[in-house]
Design a protein around this nucleic acid. Structure first.
Lengths: 228, 228
DNA sequence: CGTCGTCTTGACTTACCTCAATGTCAGTGG
DNA sequence: CCACTGACATTGAGGTAAGTCAAGACGACG
């Protein structure tokens, strides 16, 4: 289990990891398995953590007050996300489906693997991509309409977990309407209404709760980045 | 000029930089000076850049459509920010006051300085802080009211550019109401009304366009993280 | 001390939220 | 296999926070 999961991590890095580095990773990584709808907790909790999602789908969410939640990132198998200990808002890593995570204390990871500049470069690249996505999210929720947010969300999911099907893209969403709403800064009713609009305009087709076919990608892309 | 600015950068890193590393930094860094209200442009524009603000205040903003702008980060003297070349939304680095920047191509910087693990660790730490702030911004604009956003903004600015004055904190904002609005995902009218409310409740006091005294920090903190 | 851009204030509009009722899905046990 | 159940999703009606439009006031320059 442990070796297998660390192996997945190293190949996701797309940088050659030598035997010594592999041993370090094996040493530092904490493997945590979480069943769907549960929150992940890690030992090393007062350090920054670099968490690799070996399997499953997860959300990283901030709780604002009692009943407001903002999802700051979704993460799928093969992706990496960062946890900060001392963030003003308290973030929780929630499993959407059954998950296997491996967590590494970021600073120790960097210190021990720094000699392998390719690996550190790969870490940096992943981290900066996360920064890009977080900024994009800020732009999305700060300056876009419900329609633009919904279309952007669908296209984003299509890229990450969609399977192409003759012109269309098929999606099986692992998250509920509530979680979509929490990630877009909207309510579940607004999401529902937007999906209905998209369905009626022929842009999408829904199957049950979690199945969505993106039929008209061109239209979706226009709606996603429409200047009003 | 160049050496002085690189020197400032190394001390901001709070990690010892040896002579060889300093020479590398000197080699890699591009010093760019920009007058107030102008946009910064860098040579190396198809790489990720790590930009050190040696002097001045700046904003990093995304343009969405023709007339919508979202500020994703403010940066003040001594701070570091990251630019991505291929972001879907096009970001621009705008000087709020006259600025001196130094830009380093991120990947080369990491490759050449990786041997100095302390320095790379410092880079990583700064980058993860940027990620934290970007996430915080997403939470702010996604799930907080105009009042909470305004109070949060003031407290955030107080921490970064405020000068304490017997219980109160004095601020001189380098950005306009429009820029505050663009950073909080609101309009200038809403900002103005919120400031008026805060002034009337005795939490703040304004002097001219850019001067603000935070009088009642306790109240501001409550307003900033109020669960409705 | 006048001029121009920025800020403030007010009246009105709207996109999204809230509340509430109904409908649908997926899992469970008969 | 189908009825039952509870959670989740959709739809509608009405409310509200923030946006828009417009008029003045103010402050920072010359």
């Amino acid at each position: 289990m442990r070796d297998e999961v660390i192996q997945q991590f190293t190949s996701a890095l797309s940088a050659n990891v030598d035997g010594v580095s592999f041993a370090h990773l094996r040493e530092l990584g904490e493997v945590v398995s979480v069943i769907a709808k549960e929150t992940a907790w890690f030992q090393e909790s007062d350090n920054r953590l670099m968490v690799f999602v070996a399997e499953g789908a997860a959300k990283l969410a901030a709780h604002v007050g009692a009943d407001r939640e903002q999802v700051v990132a979704f993460a799928f198998a093969g992706e990496i996300l960062h946890l900060s200990p001392a963030s003003p808002a308290s973030y929780e890593l929630h499993a959407l489906t059954d998950c296997h995570f491996v967590a590494f204390p970021t600073d120790e990871l960097v210190q021990t693997l720094a000699v392998n500049t390719r690996v550190v470069g790969a870490f940096f690249e992943k981290t900066l991509s996360a920064l890009d996505r977080a900024r994009e999210r800020a732009v999305l929720v700060g300056r876009k309409t419900a329609q633009e947010r919904t279309a952007s969300f669908l296209l984003n999911m299509a890229e990450r977990i969609g399977t192409p099907r003759k012109g269309a893209i098929s999606l099986t969403l692992p998250m509920s309407r509530q979680e979509i709403a929490d990630s877009l800064g909207l309510t579940i009713e607004t999401i529902s209404r937007q999906l209905t609009r998209l369905r009626e305009s022929g842009a999408i087709l829904t199957r049950g709760r979690s199945g969505i076919e993106l039929l008209d990608l061109k239209q979706l892309r226009e709606l996603a980045s429409q200047a009003r």
